[in-house]
Amino acid sequence: MLSTVPVFIFVALFVFFLLRITPGDPAIMIAGDQASSAQIETIREQLGLNRPLLDQLLAWAGQLLRGDLGRSVFSDIPVTRLIGQRLEPTAMLALVAIVLAIAIALPLGTLAAVRAGGVADRIVMAFAVLGFSSPVFVIAFLLVYLFALTLGWFPTQGYVPLSQGVLACLHSLILPGVALALLYASLLARVTRASLLEVLSEDYIRTANAKGLTPARITIRHALSNAAVPIVTVIGIGMAALLGGVVVTETVFNIPGLGRLATDAIQRRDYPVVQGLILVFSSVYVVINLLVDLSYVLFDPRVRY
């Protein structure tokens, strides 16, 4: 748990040096080919690149501790505000995708484990391989073609903010949510099946059978609760994959979230924004992992912190 702090420090240093170790003059890179030397000088001034490296590092650290991520070179808006504006669509998309993935993967993975070697198991595992090996954008375009263009059930693109109603918002997120969830659900279904299969061969499952308990109770209360630790771990790890998928999904569905902000910032070489986003994404990842570690206490009474 204490490892969280050094990880944060390392990420901050990485982000700091990312700009400085880029080959060539970062100010020229940011300003672009057609920039005048005056523009380049302004950017250099703005980012403090003309000062000694140690000064820059201390200034950057001081900024970070105050929660200041600098200003966008492109729009001169503070990076924190830019990220704040784009947070809701991404958070909602990730939430919808995770809930969908868990809702799909847990029952199917459980079914596959209970019927291991049977027809249901093979079908579920075949879909898991398919889901895992199909790129998000391919699934996204197929979904759009089928459910938006052909059937017209969902919009082809765009995002309805929460302020315009929860249902409208969820409706706009179903297709991107499914596109994002399938990959994640495939991984989760496989892990659920594998950990459940292992638990089902344990002695205490035989004891539960010897008590005459029903298969439902044995599977859910006795087996799943023991398989929870690896499953929750993968839910946490999967969120990293999800953050990567968010960038692609938001681009395909034209959702104004952090992923779009990232692609735009990279195209415009808006370094402060890119740095801010890397910091935010890694913080989210670190915090999720911390929460996963802490949640073990809930699932396994043998774990103590």
Binding site: Y204, R206, T207, G212, S225, D300
Partner: peptide
Amino acid sequence: RRGRDLAMIFQEPMTSLNPVM
């Protein structure tokens, strides 16, 4: 019938109880 008419005690008490209940 299991657990009501007939019951069983196993050899290994360390692994025969569910660790999370």
